[in-house]
Computed example of a mutant assay.
Amino acid sequence: MNTKLIPLAAVALAFAGTHVQAQEVVKIGYVGPMSGQSAHLGTDTQNGTRLAIEDLNAKGFKIGGKPVKFVLQAEDDAADPKQATSAAQKLADAKINGVIGHQTSGTSIPASRIYYNAGIPQISASATSPVYTHQKFNTTFRVVANDNKLGATLGQYAVQKLGAKKIAVIDDRTAYGQGVADEFGKGARKAGAGAVQIVAREFTNDKATDFNAILTNIRAKNPDLVFFGGMDSVGGPLLRQMKALGIKARLMGGDGICTEAMPRLAGATAGEAPIVCAEAGGVAAGQQQKMEEFAARYKKRYNQNLQIYAPYAYDATMAMVQAMADAKSADPKKYLPFLAKVKYAGVTGEIAFDAFGDIKDGALTLYTFKDGKRTLIEVVK
């Protein structure tokens, strides 16, 4: 009797060992504002990351021929640099395999040093400050165009397409807001060749709600365009107060105000106000069907419309995992060189990086708002 039981026990042990080996876990971190004024954008980006992980697990993705299970570890940085570094250290201590985030430039930049020191690749789906990828950290990447391109393109468009002559510029003093506003000013001056005036240069902060003083000063200068560098949580109330003060100038801004939430935050004024904004990213005509299909899947999964960054976070996650597959390893040290040269055909277009970790041939999408809804103008490169 015992001689028959021993082989059966051996078989059971062997099967158990095989089962354990099949449970390799790959941890993907996400950090963004899950609380505070920009929580709606942070949730959107996290949702895009989560959807990618769910897709990977659903199709039984393998790395080096071995099945893996992807798990998401999400942390809230509340768009605050200090909280961002704490979240980054938490992920580093957890020996995360890779990070999608952070959302803002002001949080991505300080967190990037922690990931670099830990050797963990970081891909932001939204941070646009050139500083982020120009720190000589080989672990930093982004899947959208940077502020140099975003601001300069908007400045050129304001002058050459919108005919702006007298421009007021406001920024929220964040790394993103100040950076894109400065580049906008340079682009407008260059495009205007001396015929354009920056009649006011004003500053606020990323939690402000009262703009009466700076807008009163701007109104006296009678600009035909106001550029705002900052997020929709400030840009919406700013637009509302512009209209209340009778400022008829067009409002222009970057991707921070180019969100589905902007009309709600601006109140009734958004539906009638002339707004032009640009999303740091863009989908050419050939990609439009992919984007529409993604938006439909997103709404079905989360019962809400995507805001702006979800498809870029989805592509960032997929590009990171593609590099793991190419390296046949989820070990950051082993797949990092493959991430630097990855080519992934994503929802938003091809994901490939230059020597700095910036997206190659990054596109921008210009939008306006009609009847309270974001409406495409054109995609530019």
Rank of each mutant, 00 (worst) to 15 (best):
K4F: 14
L8W: 11
L8F: 12
A12L: 15
T18Y: 14
V20G: 05
G36K: 02
H40D: 13
G48S: 04
L51N: 05
L51A: 12
N57L: 04
G60H: 07
F61P: 00
I63E: 05
Q73D: 14
P81A: 11
K82M: 05
Q83N: 15
Q89P: 07
K90N: 11
L91H: 04
G98W: 01
I109V: 14
A111S: 15
A111R: 04
N117R: 10
Q122L: 13
A125K: 01
S129F: 11
S129R: 04
H134C: 00
Q135F: 06
K136W: 10
F137I: 08
F141E: 09
L150W: 05
A152M: 11
L154I: 12
L162A: 08
G163F: 03
V169H: 11
G177H: 05
E183W: 10
R189G: 13
V199D: 08
F203G: 09
V226Q: 02
V226G: 03
V234M: 02
M242C: 02
K243C: 02
A244K: 01
G246K: 08
I247D: 02
L251F: 03
E260L: 10
R264D: 07
G267P: 01
A268D: 02
G271M: 08
E272D: 14
I275G: 02
A285E: 15
Q287L: 10
E293L: 07
E293W: 00
R301L: 06
A310I: 10
P311Q: 03
A330E: 07
F338M: 14
L339W: 12
Y344H: 07
G349E: 06
A352I: 03
A355N: 09
F356H: 14
I359W: 11
K360P: 07
K360W: 04
E378W: 11
